[in-house]
Simulated assay, not measured.
Amino acid sequence: MDPSDRKTSAVVIGASGGIGGAVADALEAGGAFGVVHRFARSTPGEAHIDLEDEGSIAAAVARVAQGPVPTLVFVATGVLHHGQEPERSYKAMTAEHLLRDYRVNTVGPALIARHFVPLMPRDRRAVFAALSARVGSIGDNRLGGWHSYRASKAALNMILTNLAIELGRSHPQAIVAGLHPGTVDTGLSAPFQRGVRPEKLFTPAASAARLLKVLDGLTPADTGGVFAWDGMRIPA
């Protein structure tokens, strides 16, 4: 991050999770930002945020607005299972499962953008990033299945594309990006780690370092894209 960002802030949504916590830790250790705000659903008080409760998002924005301007908003939230396993077949699809994944994986980050982007500067580099997934790529889909998760991440990618186009007019130096972290040793991926080669199972700290490196390398020309942990752009 640019040293000038030390007078600005970073916001991490989902900071109680493995990746979100590691991203916040790395940002604090790097010292590039004057303040690193951590928000999570499981955190009480002023640091609480629930992507399914827009009032909590507005309250978080009000808190951030009292301090240095945010030049990085990192959305590290998402749901894959937690009571509803990814569907192996179309026969397993339910409205409840589809809507749950859309609320958390698509609508939540969209509302974060709606409320936080107005705080971001128009006259310098600013980054809005959200965890996406390779399986959200329509062009890269060869296996099918995981209907709710795939569809919600594909919808998130469209939200990010739309946001990038709009901010290109008002925030010409802004970068909007989706990030695919790979398979990270967290609760989200725990049921699906069997068969993953050890060198492809990342610790949260290693994943956070890679993702922040990817963001550092992006320019406004890259805005709207989804990028893997190794910096490669993922097809839409």
Rank of each mutant, 00 (worst) to 15 (best):
T43H: 01
E46L: 13
E46D: 15
A47Q: 14
A47H: 14
I49D: 01
I49A: 12
D50T: 06
L51F: 09
L51S: 03
D53M: 09
D53C: 09
D53Q: 12
S56M: 10
A59T: 09
V61T: 07
V61K: 13
V61L: 06
A62R: 14
A62V: 05
A62K: 14
R63N: 07
V64E: 04
V64H: 06
A65T: 08
G67K: 12
P68D: 09
P70R: 09
T71L: 05
V73D: 05
F74M: 15
V75H: 09
G78I: 05
V79K: 14
H82M: 08
H82Y: 08
H82L: 10
Q84N: 10
P86I: 09
E87A: 12
S89G: 01
A92E: 15
T94Y: 09
A95N: 10
A95S: 13
E96T: 14
H97L: 00
L98N: 10
R100A: 12
R103I: 00
T106C: 11
V107R: 12
V107M: 12
P109C: 02
A110L: 09
A110S: 13
I112E: 02
R114Y: 06
H115E: 13
H115L: 03
H115F: 13
F116S: 01
V117Y: 02
V117P: 02
P118M: 08
P121R: 09
R122L: 04
R124V: 02
R124I: 03
R125P: 00
F128P: 07
A130H: 03
L131E: 03
R134G: 13
V135T: 14
I138Y: 10
D140R: 12
N141A: 06
G144F: 03
Y149S: 07
Y149F: 14
Y149L: 05
R150P: 01
S152H: 01
A154V: 05
A155D: 04
L156F: 03
L156S: 02
N157Y: 05
T161K: 13
T161G: 05
L163Q: 06
A164I: 03
A164Y: 03
I165Q: 11
G168Y: 11
R169W: 10
S170T: 15
S170V: 11
P172S: 07
P172C: 11
Q173C: 04
